[in-house]
Design a protein around this nucleic acid. Structure first.
Lengths: 215, 215
DNA sequence: AACCGTTTAAAACGGATGTTTTAATTGTCC
DNA sequence: GGACAATTAAAACATCCGTTTTAAACGGTT
Protein backbone atom coordinates (compact mmCIF):
# COMPACT_ATOMS: atom_id res chain seq x y z
CA UNK A 1 0.00 0.00 0.00
CA UNK A 2 1.55 3.22 -1.11
CA UNK A 3 0.32 6.74 -0.72
CA UNK A 4 0.18 8.58 -4.03
CA UNK A 5 2.15 11.74 -3.49
CA UNK A 6 1.06 14.01 -6.30
CA UNK A 7 3.03 17.00 -7.45
CA UNK A 8 1.70 20.39 -6.35
CA UNK A 9 -0.16 19.98 -9.59
CA UNK A 10 0.57 17.41 -12.21
CA UNK A 11 2.96 18.77 -14.84
CA UNK A 12 0.81 17.49 -17.67
CA UNK A 13 -2.18 19.34 -16.29
CA UNK A 14 -0.20 22.51 -15.63
CA UNK A 15 0.85 22.50 -19.28
CA UNK A 16 -2.74 22.03 -20.40
CA UNK A 17 -3.86 24.92 -18.21
CA UNK A 18 -1.19 27.26 -19.52
CA UNK A 19 -1.68 26.19 -23.13
CA UNK A 20 -5.43 26.72 -22.89
CA UNK A 21 -5.02 30.30 -21.73
CA UNK A 22 -2.24 31.18 -24.13
CA UNK A 23 -3.82 29.55 -27.17
CA UNK A 24 -7.01 31.44 -26.40
CA UNK A 25 -5.21 34.75 -25.96
CA UNK A 26 -2.56 34.60 -28.70
CA UNK A 27 -3.78 31.93 -31.07
CA UNK A 28 -2.07 28.66 -31.98
CA UNK A 29 0.66 30.04 -34.21
CA UNK A 30 1.10 33.02 -31.94
CA UNK A 31 1.92 30.88 -28.93
CA UNK A 32 5.33 29.26 -28.53
CA UNK A 33 6.10 26.15 -26.55
CA UNK A 34 8.58 28.24 -24.59
CA UNK A 35 5.88 30.61 -23.42
CA UNK A 36 3.65 27.71 -22.47
CA UNK A 37 6.27 25.86 -20.47
CA UNK A 38 7.43 29.14 -18.98
CA UNK A 39 3.93 29.92 -17.78
CA UNK A 40 3.47 26.37 -16.55
CA UNK A 41 6.78 26.30 -14.71
CA UNK A 42 7.86 23.27 -16.68
CA UNK A 43 10.79 22.40 -18.86
CA UNK A 44 10.63 23.13 -22.57
CA UNK A 45 11.02 19.49 -23.52
CA UNK A 46 8.16 18.39 -21.31
CA UNK A 47 5.56 19.22 -23.94
CA UNK A 48 7.12 16.86 -26.45
CA UNK A 49 7.69 14.30 -23.71
CA UNK A 50 4.10 14.28 -22.46
CA UNK A 51 2.18 15.08 -25.64
CA UNK A 52 4.52 14.31 -28.53
CA UNK A 53 4.11 17.57 -30.41
CA UNK A 54 2.56 21.00 -30.30
CA UNK A 55 -0.23 19.78 -32.52
CA UNK A 56 -1.08 16.90 -30.22
CA UNK A 57 -1.03 19.35 -27.34
CA UNK A 58 -3.81 21.51 -28.70
CA UNK A 59 -5.80 18.41 -29.50
CA UNK A 60 -5.44 17.43 -25.85
CA UNK A 61 -6.49 20.94 -24.81
CA UNK A 62 -9.61 20.51 -26.91
CA UNK A 63 -10.58 17.05 -25.79
CA UNK A 64 -9.96 17.53 -22.08
CA UNK A 65 -12.90 19.94 -21.87
CA UNK A 66 -14.86 18.93 -24.94
CA UNK A 67 -15.37 15.33 -23.92
CA UNK A 68 -17.30 16.01 -20.71
CA UNK A 69 -19.05 19.02 -22.24
CA UNK A 70 -20.20 16.98 -25.21
CA UNK A 71 -21.57 14.31 -22.91
CA UNK A 72 -23.77 16.95 -21.33
CA UNK A 73 -24.86 18.44 -24.61
CA UNK A 74 -25.65 15.03 -26.05
CA UNK A 75 -27.73 14.11 -23.00
CA UNK A 76 -29.68 17.33 -23.22
CA UNK A 77 -30.33 16.90 -26.93
CA UNK A 78 -31.49 13.33 -26.52
CA UNK A 79 -33.67 14.33 -23.63
CA UNK A 80 -35.45 16.84 -25.86
CA UNK A 81 -36.09 14.13 -28.41
CA UNK A 82 -37.25 11.67 -25.76
CA UNK A 83 -39.65 14.08 -24.10
CA UNK A 84 -41.15 15.02 -27.44
CA UNK A 85 -41.64 11.42 -28.49
CA UNK A 86 -43.24 10.61 -25.14
CA UNK A 87 -45.75 13.34 -25.71
CA UNK A 88 -46.15 12.24 -29.32
CA UNK A 89 -45.25 15.72 -30.45
CA UNK A 90 -42.53 17.20 -32.55
CA UNK A 91 -39.62 18.65 -30.59
CA UNK A 92 -39.56 22.43 -30.45
CA UNK A 93 -36.75 24.16 -32.30
CA UNK A 94 -36.23 26.41 -29.31
CA UNK A 95 -35.74 23.39 -27.03
CA UNK A 96 -33.24 21.85 -29.41
CA UNK A 97 -31.27 25.08 -29.60
CA UNK A 98 -31.42 25.58 -25.86
CA UNK A 99 -30.17 22.06 -25.21
CA UNK A 100 -27.09 22.82 -27.24
CA UNK A 101 -26.43 26.43 -26.40
CA UNK A 102 -27.20 26.64 -22.70
CA UNK A 103 -24.45 24.23 -21.61
CA UNK A 104 -22.09 25.83 -24.11
CA UNK A 105 -22.36 29.37 -22.80
CA UNK A 106 -22.75 28.30 -19.17
CA UNK A 107 -19.48 26.48 -19.48
CA UNK A 108 -17.45 29.65 -19.18
CA UNK A 109 -18.61 30.03 -15.55
CA UNK A 110 -17.63 26.46 -14.73
CA UNK A 111 -14.19 27.19 -13.31
CA UNK A 112 -10.84 28.84 -13.92
CA UNK A 113 -9.64 28.55 -17.47
CA UNK A 114 -13.09 27.66 -18.76
CA UNK A 115 -13.65 31.17 -20.06
CA UNK A 116 -10.41 31.00 -22.03
CA UNK A 117 -11.44 27.64 -23.39
CA UNK A 118 -14.79 28.99 -24.57
CA UNK A 119 -13.00 31.75 -26.44
CA UNK A 120 -10.58 29.23 -27.93
CA UNK A 121 -13.41 27.03 -29.15
CA UNK A 122 -15.33 30.00 -30.50
CA UNK A 123 -12.38 30.73 -32.71
CA UNK A 124 -11.86 27.13 -33.78
CA UNK A 125 -14.51 27.13 -36.51
CA UNK A 126 -12.78 30.02 -38.25
CA UNK A 127 -9.30 28.65 -37.68
CA UNK A 128 -7.14 28.96 -40.78
CA UNK A 129 -4.96 25.97 -39.92
CA UNK A 130 -6.56 22.93 -41.50
CA UNK A 131 -5.10 20.48 -39.02
CA UNK A 132 -6.50 22.31 -36.03
CA UNK A 133 -9.91 23.04 -37.47
CA UNK A 134 -10.28 19.42 -38.49
CA UNK A 135 -9.12 18.18 -35.10
CA UNK A 136 -11.86 20.32 -33.60
CA UNK A 137 -14.47 19.22 -36.11
CA UNK A 138 -13.64 15.58 -35.53
CA UNK A 139 -14.78 16.02 -31.93
CA UNK A 140 -17.81 18.14 -32.76
CA UNK A 141 -19.19 16.66 -35.95
CA UNK A 142 -21.33 13.92 -34.33
CA UNK A 143 -22.90 16.49 -32.05
CA UNK A 144 -23.56 18.92 -34.89
CA UNK A 145 -25.15 16.06 -36.74
CA UNK A 146 -27.39 15.23 -33.80
CA UNK A 147 -28.46 18.85 -33.53
CA UNK A 148 -29.14 18.91 -37.25
CA UNK A 149 -31.33 15.81 -37.05
CA UNK A 150 -33.25 17.13 -34.08
CA UNK A 151 -33.91 20.43 -35.82
CA UNK A 152 -35.02 18.53 -38.91
CA UNK A 153 -37.60 16.78 -36.73
CA UNK A 154 -38.67 20.10 -35.27
CA UNK A 155 -39.01 21.77 -38.67
CA UNK A 156 -40.11 19.06 -41.09
CA UNK A 157 -41.52 21.47 -43.64
CA UNK A 158 -38.21 23.35 -43.95
CA UNK A 159 -36.13 22.25 -46.96
CA UNK A 160 -33.02 20.42 -45.88
CA UNK A 161 -30.62 22.79 -47.58
CA UNK A 162 -32.28 25.77 -45.87
CA UNK A 163 -31.97 24.00 -42.53
CA UNK A 164 -28.35 23.25 -43.26
CA UNK A 165 -27.55 26.90 -43.86
CA UNK A 166 -29.58 28.12 -40.93
CA UNK A 167 -27.59 25.79 -38.73
CA UNK A 168 -24.44 27.34 -40.11
CA UNK A 169 -25.71 30.82 -39.36
CA UNK A 170 -26.55 29.61 -35.88
CA UNK A 171 -23.08 28.22 -35.32
CA UNK A 172 -21.58 31.43 -36.63
CA UNK A 173 -23.55 33.55 -34.20
CA UNK A 174 -22.76 31.17 -31.36
CA UNK A 175 -19.05 30.95 -32.00
CA UNK A 176 -18.77 34.70 -32.37
CA UNK A 177 -20.57 35.11 -29.07
CA UNK A 178 -18.16 32.64 -27.49
CA UNK A 179 -15.20 34.58 -28.84
CA UNK A 180 -16.31 37.74 -27.16
CA UNK A 181 -17.00 36.24 -23.76
CA UNK A 182 -16.26 39.16 -21.47
CA UNK A 183 -14.12 40.96 -24.00
CA UNK A 184 -16.20 43.83 -25.28
CA UNK A 185 -14.71 46.17 -27.79
CA UNK A 186 -16.79 49.22 -28.65
CA UNK A 187 -19.91 50.02 -26.71
CA UNK A 188 -22.52 52.43 -28.01
CA UNK A 189 -23.93 54.76 -25.34
CA UNK A 190 -26.72 53.27 -23.29
CA UNK A 191 -25.51 49.70 -23.54
CA UNK A 192 -24.40 47.86 -20.43
CA UNK A 193 -20.83 46.64 -20.84
CA UNK A 194 -21.36 43.19 -19.34
CA UNK A 195 -24.22 40.78 -19.54
CA UNK A 196 -24.66 37.79 -17.25
CA UNK A 197 -24.47 34.44 -18.93
CA UNK A 198 -28.17 33.53 -18.43
CA UNK A 199 -29.33 36.84 -19.88
CA UNK A 200 -26.96 36.52 -22.81
CA UNK A 201 -28.15 32.96 -23.40
CA UNK A 202 -31.75 34.14 -23.45
CA UNK A 203 -30.93 36.89 -25.93
CA UNK A 204 -29.12 34.52 -28.23
CA UNK A 205 -31.85 31.88 -28.04
CA UNK A 206 -34.55 34.42 -28.85
CA UNK A 207 -32.60 35.55 -31.86
CA UNK A 208 -31.73 32.10 -33.17
CA UNK A 209 -35.14 30.56 -32.58
CA UNK A 210 -36.79 33.32 -34.56
CA UNK A 211 -34.28 32.87 -37.35
CA UNK A 212 -34.64 29.11 -37.35
CA UNK A 213 -38.43 29.28 -37.48
CA UNK A 214 -38.57 32.03 -40.07
CA UNK A 215 -40.96 31.31 -42.96
CA UNK B 1 5.04 64.05 -72.40
CA UNK B 2 6.09 60.56 -71.44
CA UNK B 3 4.35 57.29 -71.95
CA UNK B 4 3.97 55.35 -68.71
CA UNK B 5 5.33 51.89 -69.42
CA UNK B 6 3.94 49.72 -66.67
CA UNK B 7 5.39 46.38 -65.65
CA UNK B 8 3.52 43.26 -66.78
CA UNK B 9 1.82 43.86 -63.48
CA UNK B 10 2.97 46.26 -60.84
CA UNK B 11 5.10 44.53 -58.21
CA UNK B 12 3.22 46.19 -55.39
CA UNK B 13 -0.05 44.87 -56.73
CA UNK B 14 1.35 41.39 -57.36
CA UNK B 15 2.42 41.28 -53.73
CA UNK B 16 -1.04 42.38 -52.58
CA UNK B 17 -2.65 39.70 -54.72
CA UNK B 18 -0.41 36.95 -53.41
CA UNK B 19 -0.69 38.13 -49.80
CA UNK B 20 -4.46 38.25 -50.03
CA UNK B 21 -4.69 34.65 -51.15
CA UNK B 22 -2.09 33.32 -48.74
CA UNK B 23 -3.34 35.24 -45.71
CA UNK B 24 -6.82 33.91 -46.46
CA UNK B 25 -5.59 30.34 -46.85
CA UNK B 26 -2.97 30.07 -44.12
CA UNK B 27 -3.69 32.96 -41.78
CA UNK B 28 -1.44 35.88 -40.94
CA UNK B 29 1.02 34.10 -38.69
CA UNK B 30 0.92 31.05 -40.92
CA UNK B 31 2.08 32.98 -43.95
CA UNK B 32 5.71 34.01 -44.39
CA UNK B 33 7.00 36.90 -46.42
CA UNK B 34 9.07 34.38 -48.33
CA UNK B 35 6.01 32.48 -49.47
CA UNK B 36 4.30 35.71 -50.46
CA UNK B 37 7.19 37.05 -52.50
CA UNK B 38 7.76 33.59 -53.92
CA UNK B 39 4.17 33.39 -55.12
CA UNK B 40 4.32 36.96 -56.39
CA UNK B 41 7.58 36.43 -58.26
CA UNK B 42 9.16 39.26 -56.32
CA UNK B 43 12.21 39.63 -54.17
CA UNK B 44 11.95 39.01 -50.45
CA UNK B 45 12.97 42.54 -49.57
CA UNK B 46 10.32 44.08 -51.79
CA UNK B 47 7.65 43.76 -49.12
CA UNK B 48 9.60 45.85 -46.68
CA UNK B 49 10.57 48.24 -49.45
CA UNK B 50 7.04 48.86 -50.68
CA UNK B 51 5.05 48.44 -47.48
CA UNK B 52 7.50 48.84 -44.62
CA UNK B 53 6.55 45.74 -42.68
CA UNK B 54 4.43 42.63 -42.72
CA UNK B 55 1.90 44.34 -40.51
CA UNK B 56 1.54 47.29 -42.85
CA UNK B 57 1.16 44.81 -45.69
CA UNK B 58 -1.94 43.18 -44.29
CA UNK B 59 -3.38 46.57 -43.52
CA UNK B 60 -2.88 47.44 -47.19
CA UNK B 61 -4.51 44.16 -48.17
CA UNK B 62 -7.51 45.13 -46.07
CA UNK B 63 -7.88 48.70 -47.21
CA UNK B 64 -7.37 48.08 -50.93
CA UNK B 65 -10.67 46.21 -51.10
CA UNK B 66 -12.41 47.56 -48.03
CA UNK B 67 -12.31 51.18 -49.06
CA UNK B 68 -14.35 50.83 -52.28
CA UNK B 69 -16.56 48.18 -50.71
CA UNK B 70 -17.34 50.39 -47.76
CA UNK B 71 -18.24 53.26 -50.06
CA UNK B 72 -20.88 51.04 -51.64
CA UNK B 73 -22.20 49.76 -48.33
CA UNK B 74 -22.39 53.27 -46.90
CA UNK B 75 -24.27 54.50 -49.95
CA UNK B 76 -26.75 51.66 -49.71
CA UNK B 77 -27.31 52.22 -46.00
CA UNK B 78 -27.85 55.93 -46.42
CA UNK B 79 -30.17 55.31 -49.30
CA UNK B 80 -32.34 53.16 -47.07
CA UNK B 81 -32.50 55.93 -44.52
CA UNK B 82 -33.24 58.56 -47.17
CA UNK B 83 -36.02 56.58 -48.82
CA UNK B 84 -37.65 55.93 -45.48
CA UNK B 85 -37.52 59.55 -44.43
CA UNK B 86 -38.95 60.61 -47.81
CA UNK B 87 -41.91 58.35 -47.21
CA UNK B 88 -42.11 59.53 -43.62
CA UNK B 89 -41.80 55.94 -42.45
CA UNK B 90 -39.35 54.02 -40.36
CA UNK B 91 -36.76 52.11 -42.33
CA UNK B 92 -37.34 48.37 -42.46
CA UNK B 93 -34.86 46.18 -40.61
CA UNK B 94 -34.74 43.88 -43.59
CA UNK B 95 -33.73 46.75 -45.87
CA UNK B 96 -31.00 47.85 -43.50
CA UNK B 97 -29.62 44.34 -43.31
CA UNK B 98 -29.86 43.86 -47.05
CA UNK B 99 -28.03 47.11 -47.70
CA UNK B 100 -25.13 45.85 -45.68
CA UNK B 101 -25.10 42.16 -46.51
CA UNK B 102 -25.89 42.08 -50.20
CA UNK B 103 -22.77 43.99 -51.31
CA UNK B 104 -20.72 42.01 -48.81
CA UNK B 105 -21.60 38.57 -50.11
CA UNK B 106 -21.78 39.66 -53.74
CA UNK B 107 -18.26 40.90 -53.44
CA UNK B 108 -16.81 37.41 -53.72
CA UNK B 109 -18.01 37.22 -57.34
CA UNK B 110 -16.44 40.57 -58.19
CA UNK B 111 -13.20 39.24 -59.59
CA UNK B 112 -10.18 37.02 -58.99
CA UNK B 113 -8.94 37.13 -55.44
CA UNK B 114 -12.17 38.61 -54.15
CA UNK B 115 -13.32 35.27 -52.81
CA UNK B 116 -10.10 34.89 -50.86
CA UNK B 117 -10.54 38.39 -49.52
CA UNK B 118 -14.06 37.64 -48.33
CA UNK B 119 -12.77 34.62 -46.45
CA UNK B 120 -9.95 36.70 -44.97
CA UNK B 121 -12.35 39.36 -43.76
CA UNK B 122 -14.75 36.77 -42.40
CA UNK B 123 -11.97 35.55 -40.18
CA UNK B 124 -10.84 39.02 -39.13
CA UNK B 125 -13.44 39.47 -36.40
CA UNK B 126 -12.22 36.34 -34.65
CA UNK B 127 -8.56 37.11 -35.20
CA UNK B 128 -6.47 36.47 -32.11
CA UNK B 129 -3.84 39.03 -33.00
CA UNK B 130 -4.89 42.34 -31.44
CA UNK B 131 -3.04 44.47 -33.94
CA UNK B 132 -4.72 42.89 -36.93
CA UNK B 133 -8.21 42.74 -35.47
CA UNK B 134 -7.96 46.38 -34.48
CA UNK B 135 -6.62 47.38 -37.89
CA UNK B 136 -9.67 45.74 -39.35
CA UNK B 137 -12.06 47.27 -36.86
CA UNK B 138 -10.62 50.72 -37.46
CA UNK B 139 -11.83 50.46 -41.06
CA UNK B 140 -15.17 48.89 -40.19
CA UNK B 141 -16.29 50.59 -37.01
CA UNK B 142 -17.92 53.66 -38.63
CA UNK B 143 -19.91 51.38 -40.89
CA UNK B 144 -20.97 49.11 -38.06
CA UNK B 145 -22.06 52.18 -36.20
CA UNK B 146 -24.12 53.38 -39.14
CA UNK B 147 -25.79 49.99 -39.40
CA UNK B 148 -26.46 50.05 -35.67
CA UNK B 149 -28.10 53.47 -35.87
CA UNK B 150 -30.21 52.51 -38.84
CA UNK B 151 -31.43 49.36 -37.10
CA UNK B 152 -32.19 51.44 -34.02
CA UNK B 153 -34.43 53.60 -36.18
CA UNK B 154 -36.05 50.52 -37.65
CA UNK B 155 -36.68 48.93 -34.25
CA UNK B 156 -37.31 51.79 -31.81
CA UNK B 157 -39.09 49.62 -29.28
CA UNK B 158 -36.17 47.22 -28.97
CA UNK B 159 -33.92 47.96 -25.95
CA UNK B 160 -30.54 49.22 -27.03
CA UNK B 161 -28.59 46.47 -25.32
CA UNK B 162 -30.73 43.83 -27.04
CA UNK B 163 -30.12 45.51 -30.38
CA UNK B 164 -26.42 45.63 -29.64
CA UNK B 165 -26.25 41.91 -29.03
CA UNK B 166 -28.46 41.06 -31.98
CA UNK B 167 -26.10 43.01 -34.17
CA UNK B 168 -23.26 40.94 -32.79
CA UNK B 169 -25.12 37.72 -33.54
CA UNK B 170 -25.73 39.07 -37.02
CA UNK B 171 -22.07 39.84 -37.60
CA UNK B 172 -21.14 36.42 -36.28
CA UNK B 173 -23.45 34.67 -38.69
CA UNK B 174 -22.28 36.88 -41.54
CA UNK B 175 -18.58 36.47 -40.91
CA UNK B 176 -18.93 32.72 -40.53
CA UNK B 177 -20.78 32.62 -43.84
CA UNK B 178 -18.00 34.64 -45.41
CA UNK B 179 -15.40 32.24 -44.06
CA UNK B 180 -17.03 29.30 -45.73
CA UNK B 181 -17.45 30.90 -49.14
CA UNK B 182 -17.21 27.90 -51.43
CA UNK B 183 -15.41 25.77 -48.88
CA UNK B 184 -17.95 23.30 -47.60
CA UNK B 185 -16.86 20.74 -45.10
CA UNK B 186 -19.43 18.11 -44.20
CA UNK B 187 -22.64 17.84 -46.15
CA UNK B 188 -25.64 15.89 -44.87
CA UNK B 189 -27.40 13.85 -47.55
CA UNK B 190 -29.92 15.79 -49.60
CA UNK B 191 -28.11 19.10 -49.36
CA UNK B 192 -26.72 20.71 -52.47
CA UNK B 193 -22.98 21.32 -52.07
CA UNK B 194 -22.94 24.80 -53.55
CA UNK B 195 -25.37 27.64 -53.37
CA UNK B 196 -25.29 30.65 -55.64
CA UNK B 197 -24.53 33.93 -53.97
CA UNK B 198 -28.02 35.48 -54.47
CA UNK B 199 -29.73 32.41 -53.01
CA UNK B 200 -27.34 32.32 -50.08
CA UNK B 201 -27.89 36.03 -49.50
CA UNK B 202 -31.65 35.49 -49.45
CA UNK B 203 -31.31 32.63 -46.97
CA UNK B 204 -29.11 34.67 -44.67
CA UNK B 205 -31.35 37.74 -44.87
CA UNK B 206 -34.45 35.69 -44.05
CA UNK B 207 -32.72 34.25 -41.04
CA UNK B 208 -31.28 37.50 -39.74
CA UNK B 209 -34.36 39.60 -40.33
CA UNK B 210 -36.46 37.17 -38.34
CA UNK B 211 -33.91 37.18 -35.56
CA UNK B 212 -33.62 40.93 -35.56
CA UNK B 213 -37.39 41.43 -35.44
CA UNK B 214 -38.00 38.74 -32.83
CA UNK B 215 -40.25 39.87 -29.97
C1' DA C 1 26.46 60.40 -72.38
C1' DA C 2 26.36 61.31 -67.69
C1' DC C 3 23.48 61.86 -63.80
C1' DC C 4 19.99 60.55 -60.35
C1' DG C 5 15.99 58.85 -58.02
C1' DT C 6 13.46 54.48 -58.04
C1' DT C 7 13.20 49.79 -58.00
C1' DT C 8 15.06 45.03 -57.86
C1' DA C 9 18.52 41.56 -56.43
C1' DA C 10 21.30 38.91 -53.33
C1' DA C 11 23.11 38.15 -49.07
C1' DA C 12 23.51 38.46 -44.35
C1' DC C 13 21.71 39.49 -39.54
C1' DG C 14 19.93 38.45 -35.18
C1' DG C 15 16.60 36.02 -33.08
C1' DA C 16 12.85 32.71 -32.33
C1' DT C 17 10.75 28.29 -33.33
C1' DG C 18 9.61 23.03 -32.68
C1' DT C 19 12.06 19.09 -31.87
C1' DT C 20 15.75 15.93 -30.37
C1' DT C 21 19.44 14.39 -27.62
C1' DT C 22 21.99 13.51 -23.58
C1' DA C 23 22.30 13.75 -18.36
C1' DA C 24 20.68 14.25 -14.10
C1' DT C 25 17.07 13.41 -10.86
C1' DT C 26 13.30 11.28 -8.79
C1' DG C 27 10.34 7.75 -6.85
C1' DT C 28 9.18 2.69 -6.43
C1' DC C 29 9.71 -2.02 -5.89
C1' DC C 30 12.63 -6.08 -4.80
C1' DG D 1 20.59 -0.23 -0.45
C1' DG D 2 20.48 -1.02 -5.37
C1' DA D 3 18.18 -1.52 -9.77
C1' DC D 4 15.01 0.22 -12.80
C1' DA D 5 11.56 2.98 -15.07
C1' DA D 6 9.54 7.58 -15.21
C1' DT D 7 10.24 12.24 -15.18
C1' DT D 8 12.77 16.56 -15.37
C1' DA D 9 16.62 19.41 -16.78
C1' DA D 10 19.88 21.55 -19.86
C1' DA D 11 21.81 21.98 -24.13
C1' DA D 12 22.15 21.56 -28.91
C1' DC D 13 19.94 21.10 -33.56
C1' DA D 14 18.36 22.51 -37.77
C1' DT D 15 15.24 25.56 -39.70
C1' DC D 16 12.57 29.38 -40.43
C1' DC D 17 11.32 34.09 -39.49
C1' DG D 18 11.05 39.51 -40.40
C1' DT D 19 14.15 42.87 -41.29
C1' DT D 20 18.33 45.32 -42.89
C1' DT D 21 22.17 46.11 -45.68
C1' DT D 22 24.78 46.51 -49.78
C1' DA D 23 25.02 46.27 -54.87
C1' DA D 24 23.28 46.07 -59.09
C1' DA D 25 19.95 47.32 -62.70
C1' DC D 26 16.58 50.27 -64.62
C1' DG D 27 14.19 54.57 -66.47
C1' DG D 28 13.73 59.15 -67.50
C1' DT D 29 15.84 63.91 -67.60
C1' DT D 30 19.29 67.09 -68.93
Amino acid sequence: MTIEIQDPIDTKQRILDAAEILFAREGYHGTSLRSITGEAGANLASVNYHFGSKESLIEAVFSRRLEPLNVIRRERLEQVRKEASEKGERPAASDALRAFIEPTLSFRDSGPGAEAFVRLVGRALAESDDTIRKAFMRQMEPLFHLLYDLLAEALPELPRSALFWRLHFTLGALSHTMCMAGRMQILPPGVAPVVETPALTALLLNFLTAGMEAP
